[in-house]
Design a protein around this nucleic acid. Structure first.
Length: 245
DNA sequence: CTAAATGTTAAGCC
DNA sequence: GGGCTTAACATTTA
């Protein structure tokens, strides 16, 4: 369950580990230097898009859940080994399963443009528009998955936002009127925060208007499903009310 | 049981 | 090198 809002929920769930000391770390990651974690204290916890960043004085652990990753607090899965498990000095544990976990030595500000993260209060709509304008030939469904433009946006957000702004997923970015691009950027942020609230309330899928749907809630037209773009990702759209530019 | 899915990267091939 | 396709990763759900 890994689009940006879900990672914000993850961060909130583990925020209480901030300042806590790790006695030991283990897991099945081949290239992870678990020993570096022994005796260290969590300095900070951040997110960037779909990345969870657990910060230590000298390095950062980056957790990306990819498609199937999950986590557990004080309640390990019985039939599965964690890729990373942290044992804290107060007896608590935090485990991550599957996904991609790496250690980062560079300062995070050198790696991340925080203004690209749709969940970040510093997200810049102006910069997003500039980046979109730099890729006029890209189809908009790819642009909405581009993590350098909309970090945290995933396939659900992509589909729902395009439906909201009535734009066909195959539209070329350069052909979409600027007012619609601006609206799309605004909706991406707005939907992401609604996603966050709905996900917390356990009602996310109830609010889907096109994603996995059969019928357009606006005009009753049949929803089309196609695999589009670089990643051949599922696109659900109403061919009647979403305009192709 | 099989296939597909909220994702990304690396390798292989023109 | 570029750009495209495929595999790999690993888990849950339909």
């Amino acid at each position: 369950m890994p689009e940006g809002p879900s990672i914000v929920i993850l961060k909130e769930a583990i925020n209480s580990f901030r300042g806590k000391k790790i006695l030991e770390a283990d897991g099945y990651g081949k290239d992870l230097a678990y020993g570096r974690l022994h005796g260290t204290k969590i300095k900070d916890i951040k997110t960037f898009g779909k990345h969870l960043l657990i910060c230590f004085p000298d390095f950062t652990i980056r957790v990306h859940l990819l498609m199937f990753g999950s986590y557990r607090i004080n309640n390990d899965k019985k039939d599965r080994n964690p890729k990373l498990r942290l044992h804290f000095s107060d007896g608590q544990t935090l485990s991550f399963y599957a996904g991609s976990i790496v250690m980062i030595d560079e300062p995070l500000d050198d790696l991340y443009d925080w203004s690209a993260d749709v969940m970040n209060p510093n997200f810049s709509a102006g910069k997003a528009l500039k980046k979109l304008n730099a890729h006029p030939k890209t189809i908009v469904s790819d642009a909405l998955l581009d993590q350098t433009i909309f970090a945290g946006s995933g396939n659900i957000i992509k589909n729902e936002v395009l439906f909201r702004v009535k734009v066909h997923p195959k539209s070329k970015v350069g052909k979409i009127p600027a007012t619609f691009l601006r609206k799309m950027i605004r909706e991406t942020v707005r939907y992401s925060f609604q996603f966050l609230e709905w996900k917390k309330a356990g009602t996310l899928r109830k609010h889907w208007e096109v994603y996995t749907k059969q019928v357009c809630p606006r005009d009753g037209h049949k929803i089309k499903k196609q695999y589009l773009g670089k990643g051949k990702r599922r696109s659900f759209f109403c061919p009647d009310c979403q305009l192709l530019y």
